[in-house]
Design a protein around this nucleic acid. Structure first.
Length: 221
DNA sequence: CCAGACGTTGTT
DNA sequence: GTCTGG
DNA sequence: CCAGACGTTGTT
DNA sequence: GTCTGG
C-alpha cells in the first residue's frame, strides 16, 4: 500500500512538472503521514491547480471526519464499486506529487522500512481521488486518497501492494474529467511500468514526529 | 419499510 | 447518497 | 503506514 | 486485540 511518503522539491519544479501555478508554502517533507495536509493536483474551475488537502478521504455522507483516517488508500480493483470511492473516481480524480514513498517489509524479526524513488529523482505522481465534506460547523474540508495496485517486481520483495504511479505523459489523461472510465480503470489496474529504485532506511521514519533528509539515508539491512 | 454500513492492510 | 440486511 | 491509547472521578 | 491520531 502506501502509508508514508516524501515530497522535497522546489515550488518551481513542482509547477513545471504539473503545469500549474507555483505553490507558495511548500516545505520539504520526508515523512508525510495520513491525516496530514498534502499537496494535491487537480483540474480546478480555473484550470489546473495545486492545493492542500487532508490525506484520508472523508465521504460526503460521513458523520464525522474521523472515518477518513481509514480511507488513505483505495484498491484499484474495487474502486468502481465502493460507495466511498466510485463517485470520486468518475468525477474527482487528482494526482498527488511525491519524491518517493516508503513500504515496510514484515520479517520474522519485525518490520523494516524501505524507500522507493524514480531514476534521476524524478517527481512521482500518485493516482488519487478527492472529496468535499461539509463539517457540522459549516467548514468545507477537502480530503484525498491514494489508489493502490499489485506490487511490481521492485516492490514485491518488500510488500504486495504499491501506489498507482502516473507517468508525466499521462497527467492530462488521468485528470481530464472527460476521459473514458473503463480506460481509467484499466490504467490503474495495470499502470505503465516504472523503473523504481529501492533501498532500506532506518526506523526513524516509523515515528510521525520525525522529519528531515536523514530519514532517507540508506541504512544497513 | 427502517437501520446501519460505507475501507485497507495484514494476519490467520 | 446508496446499498444491504432484517 | 506506525505509535500509542485503551477509564473514571475529582481536583487544579 | 483494536481503535485513534498523526
Amino acid at each position: 500500500m502506501c502509508g508514508r511518503y516524501t515530497l522535497a522539491v522546489s515550488p518551481a519544479k513542482l509547477a513545471e512538472r504539473f503545469a500549474l501555478p507555483p505553490i507558495s508554502d511548500l516545505q520539504p517533507r520526508y515523512n508525510i503521514a495520513p491525516t496530514q495536509p498534502v499537496v494535491v493536483v487537480r483540474e480546478g474551475n480555473d484550470g489546473r491547480e495545486g492545493v492542500y488537502m487532508r490525506w484520508g478521504l472523508i465521504p460526503s455522507w460521513a458523520k464525522d471526519a474521523s472515518v477518513g483516517a481509514k480511507l488513505i488508500n483505495a484498491r484499484s480493483e474495487t474502486v468502481l464499486e465502493k460507495p466511498s470511492f466510485r463517485t470520486a473516481f468518475r468525477r474527482r480524480r487528482c494526482l498527488i506529487p511525491a519524491s518517493g514513498f516508503y513500504e515496510w517489509q514484515t520479517t520474522a524479526t519485525g518490520k523494516r522500512p524501505f524507500y522507493f524513488t524514480l531514476p534521476d529523482d524524478d517527481l512521482m505522481a500518485f493516482a488519487g481521488l478527492w472529496e468535499q465534506w461539509l463539517a457540522p460547523d459549516g467548514e468545507v474540508i477537502e480530503s484525498c486518497t491514494i489508489l493502490t495496485t499489485t506490487a511490481n517486481e521492485i516492490v514485491t520483495p518488500i510488500h504486495n501492494r504499491m501506489p498507482v504511479i502516473v507517468p508525466s505523459e499521462f497527467t492530462a489523461f488521468w485528470l481530464d474529467p472527460a476521459t473514458d472510465i473503463p480506460r481509467l480503470h484499466a490504467f490503474c489496474l495495470t499502470p505503465p511500468p516504472v523503473a523504481l529504485h529501492r533501498y532500506p532506511v532506518g526506523k526513524a521514519v516509523n515515528q510521525v514526529r520525525n522529519d528531515g533528509p536523514a530519514l532517507i539515508e540508506p541504512a544497513a539491512l
